[in-house]
């Protein structure tokens, strides 16, 4: 046994139990609920493969978010390749008036954010990465990452305050 192995690395199962939920939230924010599951699977399979090489004492959550970031980008690219141009986005079921609602509006609002803002919000607010680390993932400066995060949050708040108006702005404004 190498001495590094003696500095104990926890069983991977413990990593999944501890970080699985955070990584799934991040993938959901960046990709939407459906593709998130594929990205989560890709992330943890790759992480399991690489786990023995992770230096002991490394920040496991930041490591996983970095892997998830790359896997999500793969899915975003694959998605944009798959996507066919349409005149208007498909109708989504509205969550309006459903008790305990606001869920569909939030998910729609997150989906409507530009990717950089979505990623900045997910990595900073869901995964707790400092903006310096967010900037390492997204490119650009920590200030730019901070702005993207703050703009994203502002848009989400506006969207939730006024959902119907938002639906209109999506159908024309954001989709090219």
């Amino acid at each position: 046994m190498e001495p590094e192995q003696a500095v104990s690395k926890r069983p991977f199962e413990a990593v999944v139990q501890e970080q699985g939920a955070t990584v799934l939230r991040v993938c959901r924010a960046v990709l939407g609920t459906h593709d998130a599951e594929d990205a989560w699977s890709d992330t943890f399979l790759a992480a399991l493969q690489a786990y023995p090489d992770l230096p002991p004492g490394a920040n496991v959550q930041a490591w996983l978010v970095t892997i998830a970031h790359h896997k999500c980008i793969d899915h975003l690219r694959a998605g944009s390749r798959r996507a066919l141009p349409v005149d208007s986005p498909p109708e989504r079921p509205s969550g309006l008036g459903i008790p305990g609602g606001g869920h569909a509006e939030l998910l729609d609002a997150v989906a409507g954010l530009p990717p950089k803002q979505r990623q900045a919000v997910a990595y900073h607010y869901l995964a707790g990465l400092p903006y310096k680390d967010v900037a390492d993932l997204l490119g650009g400066t920590p200030d730019a990452a901070r702005r993207a995060g703050a703009d994203g949050v502002k848009s989400l708040r506006n969207a939730l305050a006024d959902p119907p108006a938002l639906a209109h702005s999506f159908s024309k404004g954001e989709l090219r």
């Binding site: 799934l24 939030l106 997150v110 607010y125 869901l126």
Partner: peptide, 24 residues
């Protein structure tokens, strides 16, 4: 405050994770 704003992302999270663990 932002975390609670994003709470809808947690819908069905536990069920999804159980399935994802089995798949992993």
């Amino acid at each position: 405050e932002v975390a609670s704003l994003l709470e809808p992302l947690d819908a069905g999270l536990e069920t999804a994770l159980a399935g994802l663990h089995a798949r992993l």
